[in-house]
Every structure is written in structure tokens, then in C-alpha cells.
Design a binder for these strands. Sequence first.
DNA 1: CGCAAAATGTAGCCATGGCATCACAATGGA
DNA 2: TCCATTGTGATGCCATGGCTACATTTTGCG
Lengths: 154, 154
Amino acid sequence: MPRPPADARAARDAPPEMPAAPTQAGRFEQARRVQSMALLEDYAELIADLLATAGEARPTDIARRLGVTHATAIKAITRLKREGLATALPYRGVFLTEAGEHLAARVKTRHLLVVDLLRAVGVPADAAEQDAEGIEHHVSDITLEAFARFLKEK
Amino acid sequence: MPRPPADARAARDAPPEMPAAPTQAGRFEQARRVQSMALLEDYAELIADLLATAGEARPTDIARRLGVTHATAIKAITRLKREGLATALPYRGVFLTEAGEHLAARVKTRHLLVVDLLRAVGVPADAAEQDAEGIEHHVSDITLEAFARFLKEK
DNA sequence: CGCAAAATGTAGCCATGGCATCACAATGGA
DNA sequence: TCCATTGTGATGCCATGGCTACATTTTGCG
């Protein structure tokens, strides 16, 4: 993953107290950062769903639902554990930590809101579901609030 | 990137004539596929912009605008060339092929539309610009049309 | 003109997220 | 109970997209 650019010159040259510096480079960096969270978010949400509906989250089921091999899923679960979002005992399924559940809940809410908004502006249901899967990860809290306001007023 | 799953069993088991199968796995796969295009799109758009405004697109400028090192930019340019989107003579700047220009134009249009839509539903300008940078890559043609319709009617 | 600075290119390292493959554990049915 | 099936886990490989470090080419200035 993106090791922080030692070439943080862009940041150094600018007044240090403008972290929100909306430079073009900054926007791209943010987009890349978001990307590295996307996988975690997808897994957390799915695990929460499996736990809620099936009572357990097995690597094989996770893999099938995400369309990857079980080996890939297990690697991702390892990363979830490393990030403190999940726990797992060998051969005993995967569970979410408090942080993991929190994340999953946020992600689910956001997903629903994004789909609703897309539908509200006239996107067909299939496309809304499909595109939301990628879009949601890039929707900031501010944008999300705007979505909620827009839907309420409508 | 994702080598096509030899484990195309999901596809084999299902009736072959449902390529749009909106299974959950399918949606994730699509999102991943989109992701692999995002980088190309960003570079193409930026190169087009540099060519239009500065008359030339130099790796160093591209790198600075994207917030990466020049080495990273050059690697990406190599990929652009491989994909038939750009050409470049050593030490002589980067240019877009016809396909590359086409892509750049599409991406630019899409970017503007996404920003406009976000603004239209009440997202503040900064957030709209920021989020659009990530969102745009996941907006399908169908969704884009819906956005355009929505903006026109408004 | 000649040389230093800047731009460009090359190589090698790392983490991620795919994959296949093989070995081991758990489970269920005969 | 035993054994086949299924699920898990561990490895190792590949491509991508970051980075640093170093080599080479261009360029511009004295």
C-alpha cells in the first residue's frame, strides 16, 4: 500500500495548517486512501450480514458471496484481524470486534442511503445496486449528510 | 490484475445466457473490474488536460498533479502505452492515441456531470469535487444518463 | 561551449489482492 | 466407526501501484 511519500514536499512547502488543502494531488491521494479501506468495509459488512442471517460467517461463504476464492477471503480475514476489526478461531468461523460491528453498521447505512439517492434521481434499480457497490466507499460523511437531507426533503 | 477465475463455476452452473446476472458476487466483481480502469482514466484525463492547456504532458508534471513520484507516473504511462491509449518517445513527452483521447473526453464529461449532480443534491463544492474523484469511476452509462436527465429537468 | 541542474528512465523493494495447489481438520452418512 | 466429502489453512506465484536509489539524457545558463 501507499507508503507515505517521503516526497511530502507538496505538504512541506504549503503552510502546515491546511490539511484539507484541496489540491488536485490531495484529491487523488484521498481517493487512493479510501480505496484501501474499501475491502475492509466490504468484508465487515458481509460478515455482519452472515452473522445476522445465518448465525455464523464461514470463510467459504464469504468467499462465495464476494466472488473470490476461499484463499483470498482468508487472506483478507487475516488483514481484518490485524486491523482489529475481526476475530477468528481456527475452523470456528469469523466474528467482528466492536470496532468491526461499528464499521459494518456504518457501511450498511451508507450503502442504503447511496442506493436510495441514486433511485431518487432516477437511476434504475439494477444500476443503482451495481454502481452503489463501488460508489459508496467514496462518499464522505459530508456528502452522506447532504444525501440524507435531500431524501428527507423530497 | 485479477486473473480470470478458473473457478468460473459460478458462471458455469448458471444458465449461460444471463451475463447481467446481478448476483452479489457479480456486483463485487464488477466493482473490482472498474477499479482497474480508474488509474488509466485518471491518467488519460490529466494528460489530455496538460496537452490542452500547456501544450505538452511531461511525466514530472503528471506525477506532481497526481501526487505520486515520477517513477510511479512513468510506470503508469508504460501501462497506458501497453493498452494502446498513449504514445511516448523517450524524453519527448506523452501523447494520447485516438482511443486515449476518446477515453479522456468521456472521463471529463463524466466527471463534470458527477460533480454537477452532487452539487444539485446539496453537496458542498469541496466535498463534491473530492468525492467525485473517487465516485466517477463507478458511475455506469445508465446511471450517467439518469444524472443528465435529472439535471436537465431541474 | 561546457557543465550543473533538472527531467527522464531503469531497477529493485514492498504490500495488496488476486490466483492455484496441497495438506490438514471436521463432519456426516453408510 | 470409518472414510469420503467438504471446509480451512498455509504457501507460493503473479500483476499492480506505491516507493527509493541510481543512471542517463536534456536543457539552460554562465
